[in-house]
Write a protein that binds this DNA or RNA. Structure first.
Lengths: 159, 159
DNA sequence: TATTGTTATACTCTATAACTATA
DNA sequence: TATAGTTATAGAGTATAACAATA
């Protein structure tokens, strides 16, 4: 009676009943992130020695030259001491550069280096390609809708 | 030129340009999970002293009485030593119960306690209510589609 | 040989507080 | 007073290997 369940009612791995979690967005997001984190790690993280947060930082610094560490920390929901640590790591590897501000001497402006840009672009190529492959069971339309709804969800973040 | 961007092209928090990440599912999932983790923590985690993984374990054990720790670990992508630690915690609080198997003496069957069931149900009530409120800018249809697509995404997990 | 579960241990990452410097 | 950034430190969570018991 409880054994003959359709796969839609079972956990993606482990085959456990999960009806009570079916409508909980947080659970489905967590399950989905297991996949996306694995995809990132295999496609780009391992080869380029980048954590997800490091990759995101690189891309954001690349697209927002002169941005500050504080804004980066807000965008990624990472604490101030934490962003310092990650920036230290990226700077030691020569991927980003810190520059003292002339107008506000407390802040520092962030810039990506040529090396950093190459790494970021290579990582993006790899991730995009890997996701295209792994998620090929979703149509282009479904992927577009998913991305749109995820963005809408994330808009609920406190600024 | 680069300042007057529509909010759709900026990070949900911090207001940084993110065009290069726009089509990356992993990034959008990560941003969305910042929201859902916060919602969980505020609505249920803090009051009931439950981590997301603990809540999920409770629900899955409740729905799969007699299931084993190994299957639970697979469902949650948690390592074996890790599931032992989490089960220890839940058992110490009297929320789950371990029972030696009679057919396979290596395994142990997991059962939720009455206390554990109450906690799980209370947590679910709180999370469902909180998500309904926080994500009210999504229509019922949009939420249904989002859940369906997330499930489809998560199906790509290796078993 | 492979699997279940546990212990031991080191490592990564996070959270908090305290501090400096500046606005 | 508030903010940007750093340092110090403790704690949470994870990963790995090694192990015992069983299949």
């Amino acid at each position: 009676m409880t054994e003959r369940r359709t796969s839609k009612e079972l956990t993606p791995a482990g085959r456990l009943a999960e009806a009570g979690l079916h409508e909980i967005i947080g659970y489905q997001i967590a399950q989905a992130s297991i996949v996306t984190l694995t995809v990132f790690q295999r496609a780009a993280g391992a080869a380029l020695e980048l954590r997800p947060v490091e990759y995101t930082m690189l891309v954001l610094v690349n697209e927002n030259p002169g941005g500050t560490a504080a804004r980066l920390a807000r965008a990624l929901a990472v604490s101030a001491p934490n962003i310092t640590m990650w920036l230290d790591k990226l700077q030691r590897r020569g991927l980003v550069r810190r520059e003292a501000s002339e107008t506000d001497r407390r802040t520092q402006h962030l810039y990506i280096t040529d090396k950093g840009r190459k790494v970021a672009e290579e990582a993006t190529r790899r991730v995009v390609e890997a996701e295209r492959h792994v998620f090929s069971h979703l149509s282009m339309g479904e992927r577009a809708i998913l991305l749109e709804l995820l963005r809408k969800l994330a808009l609920k973040r406190a600024d």
